[in-house]
């Protein structure tokens, strides 16, 4: 399926969707949003490209192979939650720092954001892996990494 309309629209939608996914990720800090929905939203433009162009184009858009994204995300999320153990607190305890901002406000930065970033990467990795493997001949057959 090669549709010029879809291809052109994809070109404009792609950056918007990526930006929106980052927005959702950061918004999850205090309001509805977060890593899971952000990661899903980040996988949407990749899926769109796979539909509009083909799977290889979509695959090359990702900075890393899905399985590596998954590993990286898991490592981030697990690292954050295990990090609390080293600070003598139970698993998954959040730590926060308050940064004074130039405008006079205060920015609360916490490890939950990092945890969410990990989830974002995991979801992105899993969803793109599923999309790619459904699009290829034999789903469930994990692609060996050639990069």
């Amino acid at each position: 399926m090669k549709s010029l309309i879809l291809q052109t629209a994809t070109r404009y939608l792609f950056p918007l969707l990526v930006l929106y996914s980052v927005f959702l990720l950061v918004r999850g800090h205090h309001e509805p949003g977060g890593g899971f929905i952000g990661g899903l939203m980040a996988a949407a433009p990749i899926a769109l490209c796979a539909l509009a162009y083909d799977v290889d184009v979509a695959r090359n858009l990702l900075p890393l192979r899905p399985i590596r994204l998954l590993a990286l995300g898991l490592a981030t999320a697990a690292g954050v939650s295990i990090g609390a153990l080293f600070m003598g607190r139970p698993l998954l305890t959040g730590s926060w720092v308050e940064l004074p901002m130039p405008g006079g406000g205060v920015l609360d930065l916490g490890t939950p954001l990092l945890f969410d970033l990990g989830i974002y990467l995991v979801v992105l990795g899993v969803v793109t892996q599923i999309i790619f493997s459904l699009a290829t001949k034999s789903p469930l057959h994990w692609e060996r990494d050639e990069s």
Binding site: I130, L134, K137, P139, L140, H141
Partner: peptide, 16 residues
Amino acid sequence: FGVLAFAIALVLRTYR
């Protein structure tokens, strides 16, 4: 969501 995605892949593979 995760289970359903896996199940779709499984059914497709089984069908093939």
